[in-house]
Design a protein around this nucleic acid. Structure first.
Lengths: 129, 129
DNA sequence: CCTTTATATCGATGAACGTCAATGTGAAAT
DNA sequence: ATTTCACATTGACGTTCATCGATATAAAGG
């Protein structure tokens, strides 16, 4: 069937799960950790990219051709945003036939969620040293 | 005693927990939800702000005066970043005497982490490259 | 009052970003 | 081979941003 399956997308620059980092409330981030993490947040800091990512994550797999209409953006703009999400390691693309299919990278987004976790043990009535 | 305790910081524009939204993999984000969420991510999309937030979250409470040295940024720059974090609802400031003390808002960051969660039970996810 | 201290705001500058029209690329269909 | 189709890349434009120096505000101590 899929003879023309190729891996696709920019080489992700962010490989958070391999080396970054303790939850933000347990230990202060080093500068290099903060830079890598900021790159991932920057990829999510645009409403169009967020909607693209949620469309991909909720459908499991989405073709680029099915993103232009719901987001009302031009084809180059969609391509630009999928590239940025891929560079951040949040999605991966696979070219099958003429279409590029994008899937979420669960590990990357879970890693971000883990780092973001703030222990609720800091009650508001507590004395905070 | 602390007679001069005042609430402080810009009125947070992002009140995610009150209305936003399903995890990104269960339902596609609406445009207004994506915009609000993108604002929070934009607040985290800078290495200096990330380190400020992690310093505050890990210490529970930090004075602005203790941020300039570790981050090696000027006082106006630190003030600018704390304002942006406060506007995103991620921290709150309290002016006691001459100093402004910043604390994390656990609910906001937990809400972001919850929305980010991607269930690893995505049906066809076994073919991840 | 005046001075000191901590923080906020203003103005400017250079960099990065979102967007689209035009164009390039490579694979599929005819 | 030629055309068509899906997507990437380029170039340009206006906007937003991070940063700092200068200045303003506000509180505490004299």
């Amino acid at each position: 069937m899929n003879v023309n399956v190729k891996s696709h997308g920019s080489e992700p620059t962010a490989k958070l799960a391999t080396w970054c980092c303790a939850p933000v409330d347990t230990e202060a981030l080093r500068d290099d950790q903060a830079s890598a993490l900021a790159d991932v947040f920057a990829a999510l800091a645009d409403p169009v990219r967020l909607r693209i990512f949620s469309l991909i994550a909720s459908q499991g797999e989405v073709c680029s051709c099915n993103l232009e209409a719901p987001l009302q953006r031009s084809q180059p703009t969609i391509s630009h945003h999928t590239s940025r999400l891929a560079a951040a390691g949040l999605i991966v693309g696979e070219k099958r036939g003429r279409w590029t299919w994008w899937r979420p990278v669960a590990g990357q987004v879970d890693e971000v969620a883990r780092v973001l976790r703030v222990t609720p043990s800091t009650g508001d009535a507590d004395t905070l040293a």
